[in-house]
């Protein structure tokens, strides 16, 4: 409880007495590259396989001849867009980006670099964490869009290569009964997850004290706490918006 209170104070500090916006632009660009471009490969691999697995498993479970085959790709589409693309991507990024943020800020804290910023009269919370949070909020949705697309592609490849569904059925299925809101919902989720992962990891890293061992612990707890927050937020958003 105490930790949650401190987390909200930390969030408050992000926005008060921050430096002029132009100090952040270059940093935001750098962080976007670190968060976005450097995560493309892992997101590509994970989402393609998720789509492939979803397709094969759905096909395996749909044994009744009464159900048309195109339902397989319809299920792949809805599962990946609604749930798998945003959530799994966020969890993968919590592991990659979250631990990176916590490790970087934790190291800066224990080597007194954070103190050095404070002594210069800079609000170190916003100076260090804000560019990372903004970069995540910009890049996560893009990665989620990529993940959604690739997951459907992965399903197509797996489904057609193994012969469980014909290409025509698959294309028909992903277009049948399409709700645009689902894409919108995936984007809302990705914004929320981006904010949670980046702010929790920044908070954990920023509040490291001690030495190298504690930096490792902060990274670990940044990842576990981010994952828990993602799943709770996932549930709450589903409850609210669906």
């Amino acid at each position: 409880m105490h930790g949650i209170g401190r987390y909200f104070i930390f969030l408050g500090n992000l926005f008060i007495k921050r430096e002029p916006a132009n100090t952040y632009l270059k940093q935001i660009m750098e962080e976007c590259i670190k968060v976005g471009i450097d995560s493309i490969i892992i997101v590509t691999i994970v989402s393609t396989f998720i789509g492939a697995v979803t397709c094969i498993q759905t096909a395996f479970n749909l044994v009744s001849p009464l159900i048309p085959r195109y339902v397989i790709s319809l299920v792949v589409r809805d599962m990946t867009l609604l749930e798998l693309a945003p959530t799994i991507t966020a969890i993968v990024l919590a592991g990659k980006v979250g631990s990176n943020i916590a490790g970087e800020l934790g190291t800066m804290r224990i080597s007194e670099q954070v103190d050095a910023l404070e002594v210069m009269g800079i609000n170190s919370v916003s100076f260090l964490a804000l560019p990372k949070i903004i970069a995540c909020v910009i890049m996560f949705p893009m990665l989620v869009i990529l993940a959604g697309f690739l997951a459907i592609m992965g399903g197509y490849l797996a489904g057609t290569l193994t012969g469980v569904i014909t290409p025509q059925d698959y294309i028909y299925g992903i277009r049948a009964d399409f709700q645009e809101f689902n894409v919108f919902f995936a984007l809302i989720k990705s914004f929320a997850f981006a904010f949670l992962v980046s702010s929790i990891s920044s908070f954990k890293g920023y509040n490291t004290s001690g030495g190298a061992l504690e930096v490792g612990q902060s990274s670990t707890s940044a990842v576990t706490n981010s994952c828990i927050a993602i799943l709770v937020a996932d549930y709450l958003l589903a409850e609210l918006l669906l």
Partner: peptide
């Protein structure tokens, strides 16, 4: 104010 930290604290 300028400060030199024990470990120099360079970025």
């Amino acid at each position: 104010i300028g400060m030199l930290f024990q470990g120099a604290a360079l970025f």
